[in-house]
């Protein structure tokens, strides 16, 4: 039988004490501050698009021939009759993105599978740290590596006259995107319930069979999202490709050709463009284009992942 110590009438009644009005006021102040930060963050976040748009809008809705913009390779912003065709730049961005993904996707997904399914916990820890270190390397350092280390290596390996080309940039971008693919891919594989694996084991499957018969189909959305995020990373990279591509505005015909990307163009030319004139504004238009592409890619990846979470919670 439970016993109650103490005398009923002698106990203090904490519930009657309550909170003082000063305390309530202080709380109100803090909650207002929190709300303020919330709203201002929302403001800044939408502001990013607004300010870029603002600088580029006069050209976007004013003098820019959009058809020529997208279809002409004639990029000559500083001549007497300037022309703003970015087809060459688009080809540059596309070529390095495609080739780097061709390297990064198998490597990244393979490593994700290995880390998730095939290795012991201690090795897993070490590998994850190594991949994080890889991800932490700043892009300018990757540019440095491309310029100082990979450049001579490519010249030695392929006999090309210059080692700054699509191949160089693609290798560097692949190394930069792989950590993204590995970490998001590993999350996707981890999200597949263990009960799937156990059921397959009970039916006699080997670990490899589990991977390609059970996990890939189950995690395909997350793996797709991982690849998309890797693509986003590659498209948006600036400083590394500035150093690695050789910066020649042309449509490449071989991996050993030099190219120039959209991002590097902005970085290289904004400093020289006069603030407020057409060249300056067109660079901002390119910025808008990059923003939209990156946003769409990231959004798709995010929605795909939310789609899985929604299904799993249902």
């Amino acid at each position: 039988m439970a016993t109650i110590t103490g005398n009923l009438n002698e106990r203090p009644t904490p519930a009657r004490r309550g909170t003082s009005s000063l305390q309530r006021l202080g709380e109100l102040a803090i909650e207002s501050l929190i709300r303020l930060c919330g709203y201002s963050a929302i403001l800044f976040v939408f502001g990013i698009f607004f300010f870029v748009f603002r600088e580029g809008a006069p050209m976007l809705f004013g003098g820019l021939d959009l058809l020529k913009f997208f279809t002409s390779t004639d990029w000559n912003p500083v001549s007497k009759t300037p022309s703003y065709g970015i087809l060459g730049l688009l080809a540059g961005t596309a070529s390095v993105t495609v080739l780097s993904m061709a390297l990064a996707v198998p490597l990244g997904l393979g490593a994700a599978v290995f880390v998730s399914e095939f290795c012991s916990p201690k090795i897993k820890e070490a590998l994850k740290i190594a991949i994080e270190m890889l991800a932490a390397i700043p892009s300018i350092v990757w540019g440095f590596i491309a310029y100082m280390m990979l450049n001579p290596l490519i010249i030695w390996a392929t006999g090309a006259p210059v080692g700054l080309n699509v191949l160089n940039a693609s290798i560097i971008l692949a190394l930069m995107s792989v950590p993204v693919i590995v970490s998001v891919g590993e999350d996707a594989l981890k999200a597949v319930p263990d009960s799937y694996r156990e059921a397959a084991l009970a039916l006699g499957a080997s670990r490899w069979e589990i991977v390609y018969r059970v996990l890939f189909p189950a995690a395909k959305n997350g793996l797709l999202a991982a690849v998309l995020l890797g693509i986003g990373r590659a498209i948006g990279e600036t400083m590394a490709v500035l150093m690695a591509t050789g910066n020649a505005n042309q449509i490449p015909t071989s991996p050993l050709d030099r190219v120039q990307t959209l991002t590097a163009t902005i970085a290289a030319e904004l400093g020289e463009a006069v603030q407020g004139d057409d060249h300056y504004r067109v660079l901002f238009v390119i910025g808008i284009l990059l923003f939209v592409i990156a946003f769409v890619v990231n959004l798709s990846a995010d929605l795909i992942v939310r789609g899985i979470r929604g299904k799993q919670n249902a």
Partner: peptide, 23 residues
């Protein structure tokens, strides 16, 4: 709960905690 309601004295809290756990 008592702390959120303003009870701060260690002695009071000791008594309170023992009583509630016994109950």
């Amino acid at each position: 709960g008592p702390r959120m309601a303003g009870v701060r004295q260690r002695g009071e809290l000791d008594v309170l905690v023992e009583r509630c756990l016994r109950q």
